[in-house]
Amino acid sequence: MNIKEILYKTLIAGDSYKTLLKGLGVTVQISLLSVILGTLLGMVICAMRRSRFRVIRTVAAGYIAVIRGSPVLLLLMLMYYVVFAGSKVSATIVAVAAFSIHMSAYTAACFYSAINATDAMQAEAARTLGFSKWQAFILITLPQAAKIAKGTYQSTIVTLIQWTSVVGYVTITDLTRVINNIGSRTMEPLFMILVGLLLYLGMAYICYGAFALAERLAILRKGRRRGA
């Protein structure tokens, strides 16, 4: 059997590519929502971790420790079979909730250590000029922390995308599940696994590319002003 036939059998026949795209869509959807919600929640947790009040700090630290220490698959199953058991909430939403929580703990830890790594005295210097605490944070601490956090944050996102491949456990037909299905149906599992790998790899690199692009744009914008 030549490669053309394999391609036809696995990707074209019976509109397989549509199924594949649908699976890819589910994976992208869950990942994207989890990254956005997880990052927002992570910011809140990070803010709590930096709170003036010891109780709030401790709660946030505990949350980060517990979530980071537990396998995301177990968290997902716990949410699906226990927390949302019997409710009408769709499996996808449960998955987004589970991955958002997972993501939030990692981003909170990442942001927290990045902020700690900045020079607090620079923020104080801004305050002596008359900036409010918030302004000093936005203008001085945040840009520096973002630079420090970038690498870890990026890989957290890519890891999350890969971890969503376990949502098949809670009845969701995502990319991995579709790959698996087509592979068994057409008796070409190896080929389909390769296709799957390439697709996940593609998503990872789109993600890295987006960060690189954002950075390039920021430099250009700065350069334009300086050139003036």
Partner: peptide, 18 residues
């Protein structure tokens, strides 16, 4: 914040915005 505008502070460690 308003009062501090009129008071300059120079540190031992400079602390320029990096």
């Amino acid at each position: 914040n308003r009062i501090r505008r009129k008071v300059g502070m120079v540190y031992q460690g400079f602390h320029l915005f990096s």
